[in-house]
């Protein structure tokens, strides 16, 4: 079923802050096998001018995707999440995410399309820190595949 076009431009309330911990960053870096010391050693991070260890570039997706849950699970939108696949992902960084950040995400529906029975939704997540500084924007395209004909 085609999604409701009136959802385009809808912005959801900012999420509760997510506090970025050094050990969570370390866990993520280990999981992707990345031994760059800027993810685990505050001194190495400071040598590049960072206040504390920074997170790998895609780390923030866990936070923005959880925020996108507000959109995905909005019963009024009616997206069939069991059929959703991740189409595209993009990030634009003002600065890297770092340990100690308390990040909130504001999600906006940028586009809603139906193509060959597939529902396609573009969600933008604006990530800000506790002081209100813009840190990163994430764009996520989700595709809900058309059900097979019975």
């Amino acid at each position: 079923m085609a999604l409701d076009q009136t959802f385009v431009g809808r912005t959801y309330p900012p999420t509760e802050p997510y506090e970025v911990g050094r050990e969570k960053i370390r866990e993520f870096a280990v999981a992707v096998g990345d031994e760059n010391p800027v993810y685990t050693d505050p001194e190495a991070a400071k040598a590049f001018g960072h206040q504390d260890v920074i997170a790998p570039p895609t780390f923030v997706f866990a936070i923005t995707f959880a925020a996108a849950g507000q959109v995905v699970e909005d019963p009024q939108l009616g997206l069939d999440y069991s059929r959703v696949v991740h189409g595209d992902q993009k990030f634009a960084y003002v600065r890297p995410v770092r340990a100690g950040d308390r990040l909130t995400v504001t999600s906006t529906i940028e586009a809603v399309k139906s193509l060959a029975g597939n529902d396609i939704i573009d969600i933008r997540g604006e990530v800000h820190d506790e002081s209100g500084e813009h840190v990163v924007t994430a764009w996520t395209k989700l595709v809900s595949r058309a059900p097979e004909e019975a």
């Binding site: 800027v38 895609t58 595209d88 992902q89 993009k90 634009a92 960084y93 600065r95």
Partner: peptide, 13 residues
Amino acid sequence: GDPGAVVEYGVRF
């Protein structure tokens, strides 16, 4: 060396 040098990054799956 510095991952902070990445300003934008996007992919299609």
